[in-house]
Amino acid sequence: MRNYLGRRALLGLAQVLTLAVAVFLLVEALPGDAAVALAGDDPDPGRIERIRASLGLDRPILERLLDWLTALAHGDLGTSVVSGRAVTDIIGAGLGVTATLAGATLVLLVPLAVGLGVLAARRPGSRLDRGLTAVFIGLHAVPEFALAILLVAVFGIGLGWLPPTAVGVDPLLDPVVLLLPLVVLLARPVCSISRLVRASMITANGAEYVRHAHRLGLSGRRVRLAHALPNALAPAATQLARTTDWLLGGVVVVEAVFVLPGVGTVLVDAVAARDLPVVQGLALLFATTTVTVNLMADALSFRLAPRAGVGV
């Protein structure tokens, strides 16, 4: 297992670096550069040339890539070509918001989704199960932006219970602005994960080892939670990893509706401005997150249900 994890980690590192180079080349392949984007609706060619020179974008692409990789080797993500601020500062500011929101979502998501899944699986086909299924499928079909707009209209403006946006507030100091976004972010993952838990629980409940546990005279509750549930959680762990990844990438639509300046917004701004160092920094961050989260999920699945094997 340790060997396997070591190899996976090395592979992950290679994946992250490849991705960073690929992103560099892809952004380069986009039409225009930061100078053109900055000039905006005043595209005087002479002015664009001067902006380009002042940003150092007139140097050959390979040279810039090498510079970036060298700096990266020294742990330096560079500075934004557009604002001159450190990339780590720009991303850090967004990450605070995104990580807080993702953390809060996950803390609520896991018990909620698992609890509801277990509850629905207690008596498959019962009125409760069918009711929950209907709600989950319905809710899962609602896109984030639609739910966000609806919640803002009802609770933010109609009833006036909660702030409709996070305009001008620091969400970390005034977390009440995170409540509506939290509900929006929870809605779909709760549905998908609890459905998974429900299905695996039903399978597990019918499995020989669970029936054996019942025969041994263990309480139903103990059998469900201590024996069936860990097995049933393995598939949910993979889905949870995907959700975590999705959350840490900054859910752009939710950030936009609620005006939360998270990493999704930073990315959209950086791509629009062709601010390569910031895009690169984010690519590194997202790639690392994805690799790490998936690695952790695999390790966790293995712990929960060792029989799955690792196949290597």
Partner: peptide, 17 residues
């Protein structure tokens, strides 16, 4: 204060923010 989406600007205005 900054809000890129027009819908967010009107929501903030309606919500007294």
């Amino acid at each position: 204060v900054l809000a890129n989406e027009e819908s967010a600007r009107i929501n903030a205005l309606l919500g007294g923010q």
